[in-house]
Amino acid sequence: MSSKNAAEIILEAAGDAPPSFGMVLGSGLGSLADAVENAKHVPYAELPGFPKPTVQGHEGQLVLGRLGGVSIAMMQGRAHYYEAGKADAMKGPIRSLQAAGCKSLLLTNAAGSLLNGAGPGSLMLLTDHINFSGSSPLIGEESPTRFVDLVDAYDPEYRAQLQEAARQQGVTLNEGVYMWFSGPNFETPAEIRAAKILGADAVGMSTVPEVILARHLGLKVSALSIITNYGAGLDDTPLSHDQTMEKAALAAQDLKKLIIAFLEGQPDD
């Protein structure tokens, strides 16, 4: 096994195009990697500290190349809290992306909607989150920077640019607050009712720990949800991971257009 750390391996694989923008692809969204130009694929198994994905729809590789004219490092798959009970499961990858030169992080996920106007197959831009899990990836951190300010954790400038990109591409982009549940079970109807009362517009089992980790490192963050279902009790469709995969595929083209248009407006440095 190589003695190099993950950031060094990433930079070596990237060659003369070190990444400036990191991305994490959620369940069923791996096809976005097909749009990456001059793509180089590095399996997570070759990157110290990267997870071994256990969830269908997570390929388990890092894709390096250019998208929308920007040098990117795209993670096809993430680690979830529910896989091993570790809120900081994504600490290694996100720190490695930052060490390799990424200044920004765009997160995607599959989520359940609590909004009547945002049904399966639609997109939602996250404006804020509610950490319903009661855990944090910064538990155990000893540095003073562990006390992270999460006001505007979802960068307002990026949010405005994503909405403008959506307008230009004719893509409807809802906005909302994401509530993180630990999973892996889906929420109960009572939990969904509670989430609505607390101000959530979507629910899911990822993303929030990554936002906290990224802000801890000073990265600019944006996040997009593909809505794959309504929350439990809001319609009669049984909830399943197969449904998540099916609906994610339906919205993948809109997501691809939106992300490429957004990246075309970003500096490549």
Results as ranks from 00 to 15, higher is better:
N5F: 11
A13V: 01
A14E: 08
D16F: 12
P18G: 02
S27V: 00
S31E: 11
V36D: 01
P43N: 07
P43A: 13
P43W: 11
G49F: 10
P51C: 07
K52A: 15
Q56C: 02
Q56R: 14
G57E: 00
G60S: 13
Q61F: 10
Q61V: 12
L62E: 09
V63W: 07
R66S: 15
I72C: 13
A73W: 04
A73P: 06
A79L: 08
H80G: 11
A89F: 04
P93Q: 04
P93W: 09
P93S: 10
S96T: 02
S96N: 07
L97A: 03
L97N: 07
L105W: 00
A110N: 11
A111C: 10
L114P: 08
L114W: 06
L115Q: 15
G119F: 00
G121S: 12
L126W: 01
N131K: 04
S135C: 15
P137C: 12
L138Q: 11
I139H: 13
T145I: 12
F147E: 12
D149M: 08
D152A: 06
D155M: 06
Q161M: 13
V171Y: 02
N174W: 14
Y178W: 00
Y178T: 03
F181Q: 07
S182H: 15
N185C: 12
F186Q: 10
E187Q: 14
T188G: 07
I192E: 02
R193C: 01
A194M: 15
A194C: 14
L198W: 06
G199Y: 08
D201N: 14
S206Y: 10
I212K: 09
G218F: 12
G218K: 13
S222M: 08
L224T: 10
I226E: 04
G231E: 04
G231C: 05
D242G: 11
M245C: 00
K247P: 01
K247N: 15
D254W: 04
L255W: 05
L258V: 04
F262V: 04
D268C: 11
